[in-house]
Amino acid sequence: MDWYPLWNSLRIAAIATVITFFLGVFAAYQIAKLPRLLKGALDVVLTLPLVLPPTVVGYLLLCLLGPRRIFGSWVFQTFGVKMVMTWWSAIFATAVVAFPLMYRTARGAFESFDPTLADSGRTLGLSNTYIFWRIRLPCCKQGILAGTVLAFARALGEYGATSMIAGYTPGRTATISTTVYQLWRTNDDAGALRWVLVNIAISFVVLMTVNLLERKKVVPRREELS
């Protein structure tokens, strides 16, 4: 059995998760500070990929990155690199589709963060960078971790946009999801089933992890006894 689709899917999902982690956390943090109207509008735009069909996302990405489109042609002329139909093209597709999951869970976590903690950090003289990485992020750890794992799971399962922008080339752009479709289409039922089982096993582990992360730590609060 050729394990290339597993390896390819995992690296695409991993890189896309790292990208969505930073972009999602950054967007969530910045948007939480905006006035309400602007916040609502931007929120809709950033959440849109969650509800749009992946084929629509794929279409829009092709409009941007295609070899004869604005960005795609500029990159090709400048760097001589084609943005589509390579293994890493799928990173764009999966990152866009997984982004809303990261962004929304991170935003929820940031919104439940007690702002007086940041205020007390500032009055103590701690820098805003320190407060963000050492206080705000650790306090929102559970939500952000859950968002990261969800984004990874979504990235791993991405099919529609990936197949449009990266296609299916065995040994080059094949991922688990595109391989399942390809094997089924060519009547290799046994081969498709093997990949289906691999996919289910990975998703199971990932969702178990989310559940474990989301379970609230129960800490008995000590009453005033001293």
């Binding site: 007690d114 903690l117 205020d119 007390s120 500032r122 003289g125 701690l126 206080i135 306090c139 750890k141």
Partner: peptide, 20 residues
């Protein structure tokens, strides 16, 4: 001045200790 530059200690009502 930013709160950091002011060097003014603030004891919050709920103390605002860093829970982590």
């Amino acid at each position: 001045l930013t709160p950091q530059e002011r060097r003014v200690g603030y004891l919050f009502q709920q103390y605002a200790l860093f829970p982590n």
